[in-house]
């Protein structure tokens, strides 16, 4: 069961970070005065949440046993899937118009 949990950990972390940043973005847009951009503070909050989410992956890599073989590789691949998905899908917080 622990192994299954480790396999699911990476994508689950992505799901959490994605939901948090998406929710934060919606909340900031709802409270913004203008229709276009949120301003520097809100942008920093979004980028900060994204970076914190990425940072959350780093200690989790230490949880994976340093063995080789399929059983050890799958949790590692799961973490990479989560990390790459977090990097790629939330990258827009740095470059696009906010609202």
């Amino acid at each position: 069961m622990r192994w299954l949990g480790l396999v699911l950990l990476g994508p689950a972390l992505w799901a959490v970070v994605f939901s948090l940043v998406y929710g934060l973005h919606g909340t900031l847009c709802a409270t913004a005065s203008g229709p276009e951009d949120l301003g520097r503070a809100a942008r920093l909050a979004l980028v900060g949440a994204w970076l914190l989410g990425i940072a959350a992956f780093l200690p989790v890599f230490a949880l994976i046993p340093e063995r080789s073989g399929q059983a050890a590789n799958l949790p590692r691949i799961g973490l990479w899937i989560g990390l790459v998905a977090t990097l790629f899908t939330l990258f827009p917080v740095t470059v696009t118009t906010s609202c």
Partner: peptide
């Protein structure tokens, strides 16, 4: 594993024309 999770982060692509924020479109 990737499909199971990522497929829950796509639903808004059915709603691209409803006027949601640009950043959400990009996500």
């Amino acid at each position: 594993l990737g499909l199971v999770f990522l497929s829950f982060g796509l639903w808004v692509h059915h709603m691209f024309t409803v006027g949601i924020p640009h950043m959400a479109l990009a996500f």
